[in-house]
Amino acid sequence: MHQIVQAIILGVLIGGVYALMASGLTLVFGIMKVINVAQGALVILAAYLSYWLFSHLGIDPFLSILVVAPAMFVLGVAVQLVFVRSLRGPDASELSLLVTWALALGIEGVLSVFFKTTFRSTLPSYADRSWDVLGYNVGFVRVLAFGTSAVLLILLSLLLTRTRFGRAVRATVQNPTAATLLGVDANRVQTLSFGLGVSMAAAAGAVYGVIYPFNPGSHYDLISRLLSIVVLGGLGSLGGAVVAALAMGVIEAIVAVEISPIWASFSFFVVLITFLLVRPQGIFGLRERTL
């Protein structure tokens, strides 16, 4: 029992970070029906940026979010303008899947040229500190990671519900044509949201680098998890992504202690497939129609 509770604590803490990564993915899908397969590679890119800032300039990885996230926002805007926006026609969504995949390969290639394929890890002085709460071991870094992710997710949802920009975004999600008719600049909303999604990946990447060792190839593992999360949560649903990410964290942690760590990520896929059998649209998703 003790082991399972410990696993659940660990799973929730990690799940929070995945929720942050997935939030950007699902937000972008909701607005422009684009799946950004490069989200995982962008997370890794941000992890490297934060690692570089830490090892060369001594900037704390959590503080580095303040630098990395805005920088990656600009990158995201550029990617949307150059690669994603030019896709037109009825199968623009499917094409975007492949374009962003190519982008992911490009990022992986560039990172391997600069940083080689050895595993890195951002290790600040407090990396090994942990607390003892009621007999359960709680890592300081993981709590900080979860806290950072939670704060950013709350900020994101406030941005979406309380601001003029957020209202424009939600209007575009619900009905792009009507939103445009009411004076929403759809192009601007799309570009800014893509940047926002990428900056979420960036913030999560800085955190990720402290929790896990990473190398340029790590994005394959990441993207397969992130995609499973957004599909389970329901494409386009922010709440769904958070619930699914936490579920994934907990399920994987329990399987890891009860069965074997090597079956952890496999177990989540089984859950996903079983769930899709009952509810193809995911937890909070709307039925996707062919159009």
Partner: peptide
């Protein structure tokens, strides 16, 4: 195949 285009692409990728 119970899911539609985008989800299908993602499920097959996983």
């Amino acid at each position: 195949l119970r899911t539609r285009h985008m989800t299908f692409a993602i499920v097959t990728l996983t």
